[in-house]
Lab assay of single mutants.
Amino acid sequence: KRPVSAMFIFSEEKRRQLQEERPELSESELTRLLARMWNDLSEKKKAKYKAREAALKAQSER
């Protein structure tokens, strides 16, 4: 099983909040919005998710 990506971790963290704030969005619209949010995120903020990705990857390799 492959470890999850930093973007996937970000998306899972933000998805529920966005669904509550924007219930009119379809699943595909929500996914596009999350992708745009990820792309607009600064490298400094992405680092938090990339660190979690690395930790999960290291854990799965044990």
Rank of each mutant, 00 (worst) to 15 (best):
A47V: 08
P23S: 04
A6W: 02
A47E: 12
L34G: 01
R52F: 04
R15H: 02
W38T: 00
D40W: 02
S5H: 01
R32P: 08
R36L: 09
Q17L: 13
K45Q: 15
W38I: 00
A55G: 12
M37W: 03
L41Y: 01
V4M: 13
S5R: 06
R36C: 11
E29W: 01
A47R: 12
K50W: 07
Q19G: 10
E61L: 11
E20L: 08
S60V: 12
K45N: 11
K46I: 02
L34N: 00
E13P: 01
S28P: 12
R52A: 05
K57H: 12
Y49M: 00
S11W: 10
E27C: 06
A35P: 04
K14F: 13
P3S: 14
E43D: 02
A6S: 05
R2A: 06
R16E: 08
A54Y: 10
L30V: 13
S28L: 11
K45H: 08
L25N: 01
D40P: 00
S5Q: 08
K14W: 06
A55K: 11
E24H: 10
V4Q: 09
W38F: 06
K44M: 09
S5T: 12
A51C: 06
E43P: 01
R32E: 10
F10L: 01
N39C: 07
Q17I: 04
E29I: 02
R32F: 05
L25M: 14
R52C: 08
L25V: 06
S42G: 09
L33Y: 08
Q59V: 13
L41Q: 04
E43A: 14
N39F: 11
S5L: 06
R62Q: 14
L18F: 09
S11V: 15
F10W: 10
I9T: 04
L34A: 05
K1W: 04
K1N: 05
E21Q: 14
K45M: 12
S28M: 07
L41K: 01
W38C: 00
M7A: 12
R52S: 07
R2M: 07
F8D: 13
K44S: 14
E43L: 04
E24W: 09
V4C: 04
A35V: 11
L34T: 09
R52H: 08
L56M: 06
K14G: 04
A51G: 08
S11R: 07
S5A: 13
R22K: 09
E24T: 07
Y49P: 01
L18C: 07
R52I: 07
A6F: 01
A58S: 11
A58C: 10
P23R: 03
S5G: 13
V4P: 04
